[in-house]
Computed example of a mutant assay.
Amino acid sequence: MHVRERRADGYHALESLFVFAEDGDILRAGHRDDGVITLAVEGPCGAGLSGDEDNLVMRAARSLQAATGITAGADIRLDKRLPVASGIGGGSADAAATLRLLMRLWNITVEGAVLQQLSLSLGSDVPACLASTTQLVRGRGELLEAQALDDLSCRPMLLVNPRVGVSTASVFAGWDRIDRGPLDARNIDGLARAGRNDLEAPARLLAPVIGDVLQALQAQAPRLVRMSGSGATCFALFDDGQAMTQAATALRHDHPDWWVMETRIRTS
């Protein structure tokens, strides 16, 4: 996550490599003929997350309904397995998945440019989540470039969250405004050598436990460790699944209150 200059529209110009895990939240939907849309939230991370109109899933469904003029509705169920507001784009991925799911459910097609603009209106990370493949994302989130990195595809990835929330706005407000250069996202060696997360320092000031997570992950000797997004989730990439499983076991033993997920990076 390289933060460059602040744009005239108030957004920060970002450069970030988006990769997607094989595991995550699950969405299901049933067709309704009356135009009503409902959302039920369940799952291990669903507590405290409402299904009201502010939920990104509901906003995505309403936006698609309005953009297409369709009179159908849907009963949507969100099985929330990823921590809320944890810097891994779970809500954005859910919004993008809602658009894909409802287009299939309602048997409708939306022109690509229209769909991209609709998704951007929902959030800066949503356009990249539509394809859910490895991409280099620039600007506010509207500039997407496919990145087929052979050394990342299917790579074991461990996600760890200390169950501490940090405000994205507060993290950005704490950024030191120093442009440290572009992101080299051509391969994992470049990411390890020069890749960084410019939001890590302000996030750690707000939640020092992030430093503990990074240190605990680094102690497991992975290929690469970084904080994800604006935090507080951190990730580690491993060369093989056995090493990842051993690291996960050790972390669950030493930090039973942390959220730990073993997964792999989806193929591009």
Rank of each mutant, 00 (worst) to 15 (best):
D176C: 02
G123S: 11
D54F: 06
L152Y: 15
R196W: 04
I70L: 05
R62Y: 02
L27V: 13
D189I: 08
G87A: 13
M58P: 05
M244N: 08
I70M: 01
T263W: 12
S63P: 00
D254K: 14
T109H: 14
G190N: 08
P256V: 13
T245M: 03
G89K: 10
T98V: 08
N161K: 05
G30Q: 14
L82G: 03
V171C: 05
H255Y: 14
T68N: 03
Q135P: 10
S119R: 11
G30E: 14
P202V: 03
L130V: 11
M1Q: 09
F18K: 02
T71R: 15
M1Y: 06
Q135T: 13
G24F: 06
S121Y: 06
A248S: 09
I188Y: 02
D184A: 10
S124I: 08
A169L: 00
A67D: 05
A247F: 09
L214G: 09
G112V: 09
V3Q: 04
A47K: 04
W106T: 11
F238T: 10
M1R: 02
S268N: 13
I26G: 05
E53Y: 03
A61G: 06
E145P: 02
L118C: 00
H31N: 07
A95Q: 10
N55Y: 15
D23G: 10
A173S: 02
S121R: 15
A74H: 10
L39R: 01
V166F: 00
S50I: 14
G231W: 07
D254F: 07
A60H: 10
N161V: 06
E15L: 01
P208E: 14
Q116Y: 00
G165Y: 00
P208N: 13
R28E: 12
T233I: 04
L122K: 03
C234P: 00
D239M: 14
L205F: 09
A219K: 06
E5C: 02
D189C: 07
R196T: 05
Q147V: 14
K80G: 03
R77Q: 11
L152D: 12
M244G: 03
I108H: 00
C234I: 02
L101I: 12
H12D: 08
S268T: 09
P83N: 14
S132R: 07
N187L: 00
A248M: 10
L122G: 07
Q215C: 06
R180K: 08
L251P: 03
L136R: 08
R177C: 15
P202W: 03
R196C: 07
W258H: 13
G231V: 07
G231E: 06
I70H: 03
T134D: 15
I76P: 01
A146D: 14
D33V: 01
A232F: 09
D54T: 13
D189T: 04
A192E: 13
W106H: 04
D23S: 14
G123K: 07
S170C: 04
G30D: 15
A97C: 13
P44L: 04
P222L: 08
T168Q: 07
G48R: 09
A97E: 14
K80H: 01
C129A: 13
P44F: 06
G241W: 00
V164H: 01
